[in-house]
Design a protein around this nucleic acid. Structure first.
Lengths: 223, 223
DNA sequence: CCAATACCTGAATCGGGTTTCATGTTCCCG
DNA sequence: CGGGAACATGAAACCCGATTCAGGTATTGG
């Protein structure tokens, strides 16, 4: 529910800096937008519903945002930084790249499980705001590819792999696995699972490990 | 552009069977819908635009379809059968499962490259018609899993793999690779590529091969 | 040629959404 | 405590699209 905004918030509409009261209203609107977009999707959501949820009047919205699409974009950016944070935090304790992969997916799945509807917002950006979706994926892949390339130099993963292609493939795999086993899965009470089925994570890890591990004949760079 | 409809077309609105003229009008509407949804997305598309594109009056639409969502659903189903056809046709000449994987992806990418906008329609179903998207993915995965399981029994792919998880992972990987290297890629003239970069397909194949191939120590069932 | 049947038409109905703006209200500094 | 800046309000202007329906037009079998 928390919204991260590192830059000092300004009213997007005018560029004017905000007082404490203004900042708080803006934050309330952004959090309301998050909730409403997540629950209803972009097109069913409306500014009226967002302002009602935030407990402010309709017109107030336009003091802080340029319009519906503008809040949506800001939201996607915010979610992107939160997912990446969840992933990199999870990976931070890894001993090697293959463990990092498992932990990274765990972090991703944890985020998705904790905010099932939120990740739908990101995917809906493909249709609402393609540039934002592109940014989202590219930011994730950039870090990914860098990690893979470094591991490759250290001989932790096979040299023949194309890190760029692999990074996109893994991201796509994670996304569909998350969709299938988190967003679509219902337990006995029809509730979505609080976290990913460990067997699935194991299956995923086995798959990734097999794909990435160096061939046994391959020489290791021992620095 | 061709629309496949195996069942004799009937007016969805009334269930009444159609004469030749009626069938033709219905087909024109469905093809126009395909075009308009692909170009504009679901929400920007409108019945007026679809009927204009088809060269019929607004009201005619409702003689053949129950509404906007109904054509969309029918379209997703149609596209699903076309993608699967493209994939299974490509796979039909494969000597073993790993070659089948490569050819299957080639078929998928060929379809996506030939109809760049169409695959967006399928993905938009996540928000417009979730049940249709689920059906789409599950139909693809079902065939996939069956093929993997059979190959596993024959010792063509590693026994330890969870075919269910692998099927979803591969489908996700293919989808994001297609998005990145077909839908987003522009050549010098800003045109999307007519087919996938062979280097990418090779990278993808290497990745899949490594993940699926049996361990060298693994015993083969020799029937 | 004449029903009768199948098709087609598009103005009108109905519902809804975004954005603006003239008018308050609150806050805070001197 | 007075007044200006910042903030808040919600009715109204404006735009757009799905769906209906009463009234036409093509087609065809006899």
């Amino acid at each position: 529910m928390t919204v991260h905004t590192d830059d000092p918030p300004v009213s997007s509409a005018t560029g004017r800096p905000l007082t404490t009261r203004g900042r708080q209203t803006r934050r309330r609107l952004l959090e309301a937008a998050e909730q409403v977009f997540a629950d209803l999707g972009y097109h069913e959501a409306s500014i009226v519903k967002i302002t009602e949820h935030a407990g402010v009047a309709l017109g107030t919205f336009y003091l802080y945002f340029d319009g519906k699409q503008a809040v949506f974009d800001e939201l996607v950016l915010d979610l992107n930084s939160r997912v990446r944070h969840s992933m990199s935090e999870a990976m931070s304790t890894a001993a090697d790249r293959i463990e990092a992969e498992r932990l990274g997916f765990e972090g991703f799945f944890r985020f998705t499980a904790a905010h099932p509807a939120l990740y739908r917002v990101v995917r809906e950006a493909e249709f609402v705001s393609p540039a934002m979706l592109k940014l989202h994926y590219e930011r994730i892949v950039d870090g990914y590819r860098a990690g893979l390339a470094a591991a490759q130099r250290d001989g932790e993963i096979a040299a023949e792999l194309d890190t760029d292609v692999v990074a996109w493939a893994l991201m796509g795999a994670g996304e569909l696995i998350g969709m299938r086993y988190l967003l679509w899965e219902k337990d006995a009470d029809g509730r979505p699972p609080a976290q990913i089925d460990p067997a699935v994570l194991d299956g995923m890890t086995a798959f990734i490990t097999r794909a990435l591990r160096p061939d046994t004949t391959e020489g290791k760079t021992d620095d």
